[in-house]
Simulated assay, not measured.
Amino acid sequence: MTYLAHPDRYETMPYRQCGQSGLYLPAISLGFWHNFGENRPVETMRAIMRRAFDRGVNHFDLANNYGPPNGAAETAVGAILREDFAAYRDELLISSKAGWRMWPGPYGYGGSRKYLIASCDASLKRLGVEYVDIFYHHRPDPDTPLEETISALDQIVRSGRALYVGISSYSPDLTERASTIAQQMGTPLVIHQPSYSMLNRWIEDGLTDTTTENGMGIIAFSPLAQGLLTSRYLNGIPADSRLASNTSLHADHLNDETVEKIKALNTIAHERGQSLAQMAIAWTLRKSAVTSALIGASSVAQLDENIDAINALVFTEEELERIDAYATESGINLWAEATESKHA
């Protein structure tokens, strides 16, 4: 059946200006890491994308290595874009990234011009689009001069492969340097994608100030702390969870102290009339420096629950003070200064 988007899709979703650019993102964006590969039925993926767009989520976030396996998410999303969303391309924000390992050899990861441009071309082919709206360098590369990396992003924009460019998981100092280089080249970085949650607050130590001063927006990934900030772990570790399978998280991340934090935050969420996941997402959006929260979804029901976070985005000072007592660093920032030296 031909997909017709809901006529009221823009009525309830807030849209926020991304830094000082003309780019506006929905408060909630949909990402496809670990949940849009060969491990999901195509019709489930199609239903999630349709429902997201019907609710005003017009930003779909990918990367070259999303799947599983690598590249599968872009291939799957590309097919659904062609079949269902061709008429809506100008309403969509499609983003992709490169930086992590994608293929063998010294040019299969990092921040070199060769890798970034080749990877962008491959992403465009898998997605079946002429350009992406945002292209990111996915993580810092200590072995490539920053000038080369930013110059490659500049070329990607000037060649028409992307409309905007950004960075991910860069420290405040590296963000400042990258932004200066990009502005000198005439293709400013407009967005930074860091991990951020109530259990991972590193961006508050300088990064939000740096992005604001340089006219950049922030899209926060992993606002649910890899699922810890949901009801899943309130009573132990489910057999089908990421912790049980050591997928990105491992059992050490759920110690007694963290469990107590999660339970206390869950109580506050219920007092607000929200699930823990909804409050966690809303909390990341409490300050204007964060433009959008990036969520994943394995079902339409999960997607709807998370999008419903927009129904209660305002916090009282008392609520924020209570949350701060439990929203503390918990050793789950898996991407802190993420590097993979070619010379290691």
Score class of each variant (00 low, 15 high):
Asp141Gln: 11
Ile307Lys: 00
Leu313His: 10
Asp143Arg: 06
Gln155Pro: 02
Ala220His: 06
Thr258Trp: 12
Ala327Val: 14
Tyr115Ser: 12
Pro104Gln: 03
Leu313Ala: 10
Asn64Arg: 04
Arg201His: 06
Ser330Lys: 13
Ser171Asp: 08
Arg242Glu: 06
Arg158Tyr: 08
Thr12Met: 14
Ile117Thr: 05
Arg101Glu: 10
Trp100Lys: 06
Thr230Ile: 14
Gln226Ser: 11
Gly110Cys: 12
Phe32Arg: 02
Ser195Gly: 06
Gly273Val: 05
Pro238Gln: 11
Arg50Ile: 07
Gly19Lys: 01
Leu285Thr: 12
Lys263Thr: 09
Leu127Met: 06
Val190Arg: 00
Ser231Asn: 12
Ala269Glu: 02
Asn235Met: 12
Glu337Asp: 15
Asp240Pro: 15
Leu163Met: 10
Gly273Lys: 11
Val57Phe: 03
His270Leu: 15
Tyr3Glu: 12
Ile323Trp: 09
Tyr109Pro: 00
Lys261Met: 15
Ala5Trp: 13
Arg46Asp: 10
Asn39Trp: 01
Asp141Ile: 04
Met279Lys: 08
Ile181Phe: 03
Tyr10Glu: 03
His6Asn: 11
His192Thr: 03
Gln302Cys: 08
Ala301Ile: 06
Pro194Trp: 01
Lys261Trp: 07
Ile117Cys: 04
Asp61Val: 07
Pro194Ser: 00
Ala162His: 00
Val157His: 02
Glu305Met: 07
Thr180Gln: 11
Pro69Glu: 14
Asp308Gln: 05
Thr258Cys: 08
Gly71Ser: 12
His6Val: 05
Val77Met: 10
Met185His: 01
Gly99Lys: 11
Phe135Pro: 00
Gly78Ile: 01
Arg40Gln: 04
Pro140Lys: 01
Thr2Ser: 11
Ile268Phe: 11
Ile203Arg: 06
His343Arg: 15
Gln193Phe: 02
Gln193Asn: 02
Thr247Asp: 15
Leu92Ser: 03
Val190Lys: 00
Ser288Gln: 05
Gly273Pro: 13
Gly78Glu: 05
Ala98His: 03
Ala220Phe: 11
Ser330Ala: 14
Ala251Ile: 12
Glu147Gly: 03
Glu260Ile: 07
Ser168Cys: 02
Glu340His: 14
Ala309Asn: 06
Trp33Tyr: 14
Val165Glu: 00
Asp54Gln: 10
Gly71Gln: 04
Asn235Asp: 12
Ala98Thr: 03
Glu130Leu: 11
Phe315Asp: 12
Asn200Ser: 13
Ala309Tyr: 14
Asp54Ser: 10
Gln302Met: 14
